[in-house]
Deep mutational scan, measured.
Amino acid sequence: KRPMNAFIVWSRDQRRKMALENPRMRNSEISKQLGYQWKMLTEAEKWPFFQEAQKLQAMHREKYPNYK
């Protein structure tokens, strides 16, 4: 399994919040909304999620050194 990228790190919590706030919203619509919201974030707002993704990638490399 691949390490999470910055968008996935960010969207994990956002998806839960959105699903709780909009229980009738379909998963496909939630995904569209999340994509739009991510695009609207500034680079500074995205930065912590890129840092977290880099940490996860480093841990993944250490744990699975022969992963493609």
Rank of each mutant, 00 (worst) to 15 (best):
G35E: 15
D13A: 15
F50L: 11
H60F: 02
P3E: 15
F50A: 06
Q14A: 15
P3I: 09
Q33S: 09
A6D: 03
I8V: 12
K46Y: 09
K63L: 12
G35T: 11
Y67N: 14
K1Y: 12
A19S: 08
Q51D: 11
Y67E: 15
N27E: 15
A44D: 10
E21N: 04
Q14K: 07
H60P: 12
L34F: 07
P48C: 02
P48R: 02
N66M: 14
P3M: 05
N22T: 01
R24H: 14
L56E: 09
N27Q: 13
S31C: 15
F50W: 04
S31R: 06
R15Q: 04
N27Y: 10
K55G: 07
M59P: 14
F7N: 02
M59Q: 13
L20D: 14
F49W: 14
N27H: 13
S28L: 03
E21C: 10
I8Y: 11
Q54W: 03
F7V: 00
G35I: 13
W38V: 03
K46G: 06
W47G: 10
N27V: 04
M25K: 04
K63M: 12
Y36D: 15
E21T: 04
Q37M: 09
Q51R: 09
Q51E: 12
K32V: 07
R61K: 14
Q51T: 04
R24Y: 12
K32A: 12
Q57C: 10
Q33H: 08
L56G: 06
Y64D: 15
R24T: 15
K1R: 05
E62A: 13
N5I: 07
A44C: 05
I8K: 11
W38C: 04
A19P: 03
R15A: 05
Q57Y: 08
L56V: 06
L56T: 05
N27S: 10
I30A: 02
A44P: 02
A19L: 14
K17H: 08
L20R: 09
P3T: 13
P48V: 02
A58G: 10
Q51I: 09
D13S: 02
Q57I: 04
F50T: 13
Q14R: 09
I30G: 00
P65G: 13
R15W: 05
Y64P: 13
E45R: 01
N27M: 10
P23L: 03
L34Q: 00
G35P: 04
Q57K: 04
W10Q: 08
E62Y: 13
R15M: 03
P65T: 11
Y67S: 13
W47V: 11
H60S: 13
S31D: 15
W47M: 14
N27D: 14
Q51H: 06
Q57W: 11
K55N: 12
S28D: 13
M25P: 01
I30Q: 00
L56Y: 14
W10S: 06
N66I: 11
M18A: 02
S11F: 04
A44F: 03
Y36A: 14
L41V: 00
Q14D: 00
R15G: 09
M4P: 09
A6H: 01
M18I: 06
K32I: 09
D13N: 14
N22K: 01
P3Y: 07
L20N: 15
E45W: 01
F49G: 00
L20M: 11
A6R: 05
S11R: 00
W38D: 06
Y36R: 13
F7P: 01
A58D: 09
K1V: 00
K63Y: 09
Y36C: 10
E62K: 07
S28I: 09
M59R: 10
K32L: 04
R2Q: 10
Q54G: 06
Q14S: 01
M25T: 00
E62T: 02
Q37K: 12
Y67G: 14
E21S: 10
N22Y: 09
Q51P: 02
S28Q: 08
E21P: 00
Q14W: 15
F49H: 00
A6P: 07
P65K: 11
S28C: 00
K32S: 07
A53T: 13
P3Q: 10
L20G: 11
Y36Q: 15
A19N: 09
F49E: 04
L34V: 01
A58K: 13
P65A: 15
R15Y: 15
A53L: 04
K1M: 07
K46H: 01
Q51L: 08
V9S: 04
K68W: 07
E45H: 07
L34R: 00
E62L: 08
G35W: 13
V9P: 00
I30L: 02
D13Q: 05
E52C: 01
Q57V: 03
K46P: 04
N5F: 02
A6S: 04
R26Y: 09
L41E: 04
E52V: 06
Q33M: 10
K17Q: 12
Q57A: 11
K17D: 03
M4A: 08
Y67W: 15
F49K: 00
Q51S: 08
A6K: 01
K63C: 11
A53W: 03
N66A: 15
A44E: 13
R2V: 10
R26Q: 13
I8L: 12
A44G: 05
V9K: 07
E29S: 05
I8C: 12
M59Y: 09
R15S: 07
P48A: 01
N5E: 11
T42E: 06
R2D: 14
K63T: 12
F7L: 04
K17E: 03
W10E: 02
F7Q: 03
L41F: 00
H60N: 11
M18C: 06
S28G: 06
V9W: 07
P65S: 14
K55Y: 08
W47Y: 12
L56M: 13
L34A: 01
I8T: 12
Q14N: 00
L34S: 02
F50Y: 15
G35C: 14
S31T: 13
K46C: 05
L20Q: 14
Q51A: 06
K63G: 11
Q33D: 08
K17M: 06
A44K: 06
E52F: 06
F7A: 02
L56W: 05
K63V: 11
E21F: 02
Q33G: 06
M4I: 12
E62M: 03
D13E: 12
K46A: 00
K32E: 13
E62N: 10
E29A: 03
L20K: 12
R2F: 11
R24S: 13
F7D: 00
W47I: 09
K55M: 10
D13K: 03
A53D: 02
A19V: 06
S31V: 11
I30K: 01
S11V: 08
E29P: 08
H60Y: 12
R24M: 14
N22L: 03
W10L: 00
D13P: 00
P48Q: 02
F50M: 12
P23H: 03
W47Q: 15
M4V: 14
A6M: 00
N27G: 07
R61D: 15
K63S: 11
W38Q: 01
W47E: 15
G35V: 12
R2A: 07
R2L: 11
R15C: 05
Q54M: 09
H60V: 10
S28T: 04
K63N: 11
R26T: 15
P23K: 05
L20Y: 15
W47P: 02
F7M: 03
I8F: 11
N27R: 02
H60M: 02
A44R: 09
Q51Y: 03
Q37T: 07
K68E: 15
K63R: 11
E62I: 07
A19R: 13
Q54R: 11
Y64G: 15
D13C: 01
N27A: 13
W10H: 06
K55E: 08
W38E: 01
M4R: 00
P65C: 14
A53M: 00
P48W: 02
R26G: 14
V9T: 01
V9C: 05
L34D: 05
K46E: 02
Q57R: 09
R26H: 10
F50E: 15
Y64M: 09
I30C: 06
T42H: 03
N22W: 01
N22E: 14
K32M: 02
M18W: 04
W38T: 00
E52G: 04
E52M: 00
K17G: 02
R26K: 12
L34P: 04
M18G: 02
N27W: 08
E52A: 08
I30V: 08
T42Q: 00
Q54N: 10
L20H: 07
Q54A: 12
K55P: 07
Y67P: 10
V9M: 10
E52W: 04
S11M: 06
Y67D: 12
Q37E: 12
